[in-house]
Computed example of a mutant assay.
Amino acid sequence: MRNSPNRLIATAFGAVYLLVGLVGFAVTSGIGFFSTEGANLIIFEVNPLHNVIHLAIGAALLYAGLKNVPAARTINAGVGAVYLLVGILGLFLLSSPLNIIALNGADNVLHLASAVLLLGVGLSVEKTPAAVRV
C-alpha cells in the first residue's frame, strides 16, 4: 500500500469518511432524515441521510484501498466524479427544498476539493516497480 497513491488515498479518505459518518450521528439526533437544514459538525452541516452517505462512501473507499490497486483506482475515480457532481449541484441547492442532504458552503468546498484529489489520483497512471534483475 505504501507504493500506491491510490490505495493510500482510498484508505485514508475511507477511514476519515467513516469517522465523519459515525460522529455525525452524535450531533444529528432530533433532526429529520431528509432535513434541508442539518446540525453543525465543525463547520459542515449534516443530517442523518448525509451521515449514511458518508458511511457508505467511507466503507467503499476503505475496502477498495485495502483490496488492491485496480479497485482503489476505480473507487477513487468514481467517488471523485460523484463528488464533483455533488459539489457543482450543491452550489445551486443551498437554499432549495431539494437540499435533502443539508449541504452548506463549506460542504461544497470540501466536496469539490475531494473531487479534485480523488479524480486526480484515480485517473493517474500508477507506477509499477521495475522488475528486479539478477
Rank of each mutant, 00 (worst) to 15 (best):
L49V: 00
N99F: 02
L112F: 14
A15K: 06
I43A: 13
V46C: 06
G32S: 06
L22A: 14
K127Q: 13
S95P: 00
G24K: 06
G38K: 05
L94R: 11
G21L: 01
N47H: 02
R7A: 03
A130P: 06
L91F: 10
G90P: 06
S96M: 12
I42M: 11
I53M: 14
R7H: 05
I101K: 03
N68T: 05
V20S: 02
F92Q: 13
V132I: 11
G24T: 04
L84Y: 03
L94M: 10
G32A: 13
A81N: 09
P70K: 09
N3I: 08
L110D: 05
V121N: 10
L66T: 11
G105K: 07
G65K: 01
V79Q: 02
Y83L: 12
F34K: 05
L93F: 12
G14K: 07
G80W: 02
N99P: 00
V79M: 03
T11Y: 06
V46W: 06
P5G: 10
I75F: 06
N3W: 07
A81T: 15
D107V: 07
Y83P: 00
P129Q: 11
R7G: 03
A26L: 15
T36N: 02
F33E: 02
L19R: 00
V132S: 05
V52I: 11
I75N: 03
P70A: 09
I75A: 08
G90N: 09
L89C: 13
E45L: 07
N108E: 06
S114M: 14
G105Y: 06
I57E: 03
S29V: 07
V79W: 02
G122V: 03
A26F: 13
L91C: 08
K127G: 10
P48H: 01
G105I: 10
R73H: 05
L118D: 04
N6K: 11
E45Y: 02
L123N: 01
G30D: 07
P97R: 01
I31N: 00
I53W: 04
S95Y: 02
I43V: 14
F13Y: 14
T36P: 00
